[in-house]
């Protein structure tokens, strides 16, 4: 019976299981759901009862009552108290949802984050101020993920990927979400809530995956005709595998850069357009 109830509850709850914030939201939701179901059943039952019990019958006379101050004050205060309790519960749960924990000892080794960026409004770092920070960049209709490790001083040359974000397990990943064109929204249901990517703004969230696996999501704000196909995947792999993947991305990037440089040289000699600025 208990199992059935929990199954029914799971049917009506948000996705979770990937990261602590998603799990905590799920718990908060379940508590609210139980309270909500009690209120729902009570109100609908009272309504149905009133309809059936007091339906017009021969000889029945309606009681001419215009109100009852005590009762009305009572249910107003009662409703307010339930909401105060729900608000208190939400605020109690808030830090476990909003504040990222430290990476586990099994996670990848991270350099300490620079403190200056903390001035940004909703950006949060783990207590030890180290996390793997990935820049999530939305554009019509694809997500780009830029990893730390720029090879050039202006921030260029950082490893990146499209559509699939590869992350190490047991490592706190903080996301810096932005957009290049229209409003998008980052969302992987099992890894926590969604956050809009608004051009001109930065939005922040985090997750920490413990189980290796693939977590799927898609853009959640209408961003144009291809909105339905703007998907995102997070693939969580053991830290060693992640380091290998990142090294490979870096290598591919430098190879591509080298080829591009070669191509540019070729264009210069072929066309004799050496004097063209910004070839």
């Amino acid at each position: 019976m208990g199992h059935l109830a929990s199954a029914a509850l799971a049917f009506f709850t948000p996705e979770s299981g990937g990261s602590q914030n998603a799990n905590q939201i799920n718990t908060l939701y379940k508590i609210e759901l139980v309270i909500a179901l009690v209120i729902f059943v009570a109100v609908e039952a009272a309504l149905m009862y009133a309809l059936v019990r007091f339906r017009a019958r021969k000889g029945a006379v309606a009681a001419q009552i215009r109100g009852n101050t005590r009762l009305e004050v009572g249910w107003t205060v009662g409703a307010a108290l339930i909401l105060v309790a729900l608000a208190a519960l939400t605020f109690a749960k808030l830090s476990s949802i909003e504040n990222p924990p430290n990476s586990g000892p099994e996670g990848i080794r991270l350099a300490s984050a620079s403190g200056g960026q903390l001035l940004a409004s909703n950006k949060r770092l783990p207590p030890n101020r180290t996390s793997l920070e990935i820049h999530v960049v939305g554009r019509q209709y694809i997500w780009q993920f830029v990893y730390p490790g720029a090879s050039e001083p202006d921030g260029l040359g950082a490893p990146y990927s499209y559509e699939e974000m590869v992350v190490p397990t047991n490592t706190t990943v903080t996301l810096d979400i932005a957009s290049l064109d229209v409003v998008h929204s980052w969302w992987i249901p099992e890894l926590g809530g969604k956050f809009q990517a608004v051009p001109g703004y930065h939005n922040y969230t985090w997750f920490k995956v413990t189980k290796p696996g693939v977590y799927r999501g898609q853009c959640a704000v209408l961003c144009g005709r291809g909105h339905a196909r703007m998907i995102a995947t997070v693939r969580a792999v053991p830290p060693a595998q992640f380091e290998a993947w990142r090294a490979r991305q870096k290598q591919l990037l430098s190879e591509a850069n080298a080829q591009a440089k070669l191509a540019r040289e070729k264009i210069k000699t072929q066309t004799g357009a050496g004097k063209v600025e910004n070839p």
């Binding site: 309809l51 007091f54 339906r55 017009a56 019958r57 006379v61 309606a62 009305e72 409703a79």
Partner: peptide, 25 residues
Amino acid sequence: FLIAVPTGVKILNWIATLWRGTVEY
């Protein structure tokens, strides 16, 4: 949350209006 209070009050008032009436469907 606050706005839910007056909204909820209305619903309870409506149920109380039906209560002990002679309701014609």
